[in-house]
Amino acid sequence: MTFEVVMAGFGGQGVMLMGQILAYAGMVHGKQVSWMPSYGPEMRGGTANCTVIVADEAVGSPVVAHPYAVVALNRPSLDKFESAVRPGGVLIYNESLISTPPTRSDIKVVAVAANQIADELGNVKVANMVALGALLEVTDLVPMECIIAALKKALPAHRQDMLAVNLAAIERGKQAAVIP
């Protein structure tokens, strides 16, 4: 079994961290994992994406042309990656920032209002975790206890108080993930 996920959004939306948490959780779950960022000369503001692979066997290519799943947090990311999703795959998109829904009918398309839910939780920064929750709900990639372990690792010592709101965001994302 090999799951490839591309996560994409604006720089600052936390797509890199979201990917790292998934990769870390996969590792804790005993899977083979890799995380590969796009990297370019722009330090802020541009689009950012990363590819996470969670597999049973050693990971071959850390970049893939046609991933199983795409998480698009903004419009340019959806434009760029909608066509890349493998037939039968999953596309999670951020309804809060994307008004025109995807058109593919050969994949599972899941809308989640990531920014709106994050706002309701009082911290727009956890929109990435809402989207991650939706992905976990639809794909069942890794169990929640592994995500919790990964979050504890990823949050620096002075930010451990953020654990609760991150977990709440993931839970809300799970609940919101409705396959149309």
Binding site: Q20, V33, S34, W35, M36, P37, Y39, V59, P62
Partner: peptide, 10 residues
């Protein structure tokens, strides 16, 4: 190469 330098693995 840039791939190995930038990617994460356990």
């Amino acid at each position: 190469d840039g791939l190995l330098g930038q990617m994460m693995e356990p």
